[in-house]
Design a protein around this nucleic acid. Structure first.
Length: 158
DNA sequence: TGCAAGATTTTC
DNA sequence: AAAATCTTGCAG
């Protein structure tokens, strides 16, 4: 099962009030977010949806990118089994929670090194060249003060 | 030890 | 527009 990442959001660590590592928090949940780049950070939101992030900068920076979604380019079958019948191809993974459900991602994947040769989860370049990259404010973080307006959401089209 | 709120999705 | 649902983080 594969998704072409078309929508992401950046979370900048201690300086970013919307980030789970805001203020330098080092709690059990965000353990993996302080880890090495390439490590997956998966958490449960609202008690029923998973969100997948990948650590970006160096270990100890607490910075990661939230993978919000994109079109499923392989494995539509299994994705639809997980998401349920009657779900349109476009809606299979067009949201943080949907992406994780379609890909079968849970907290079991938290802390996984996506750079490992035997990783169950990894990122690859499929060669498609982005036509345009749109930058907007992040979604769902109304209460993050000034950080809520930061242009850290990126949407790619091709 | 208890309670309020959350990087969402789905349905009425 | 509102509920579903549970873990984390902060107050006491």
């Amino acid at each position: 099962m594969a998704v072409r990442l078309a929508e992401t959001e950046a979370y900048l660590g201690p300086e970013d009030r919307a980030a789970h590592t805001w203020g330098g928090r080092r709690t059990p949940r965000v353990r993996s977010m302080w880890g090495r780049p390439g490590v997956a950070y998966v958490y449960l939101i609202y008690g029923l949806h998973h969100c997948l992030n990948l650590v970006t900068l160096a270990e100890g920076r607490g910075e990661a990118v939230l993978l919000r979604g994109g079109p499923v380019v392989a494995g539509h079958g299994i994705a639809r089994v997980r998401r349920g019948d009657g779900v349109s191809a476009a809606a299979l993974a067009d949201g943080p929670g949907k992406l994780c459900q379609a890909a079968g991602i849970t907290r079991e994947h938290d802390g996984l090194d996506t750079c490992a040769s035997d990783a169950a989860l990894y990122v690859a370049d499929d060669g498609v060249v982005p036509l345009e990259v749109e930058t907007t404010a992040r979604v769902g973080i109304e209460s993050a003060g000034a950080a809520a307006g930061w242009p850290l959401r990126f949407v790619v089209s091709w």
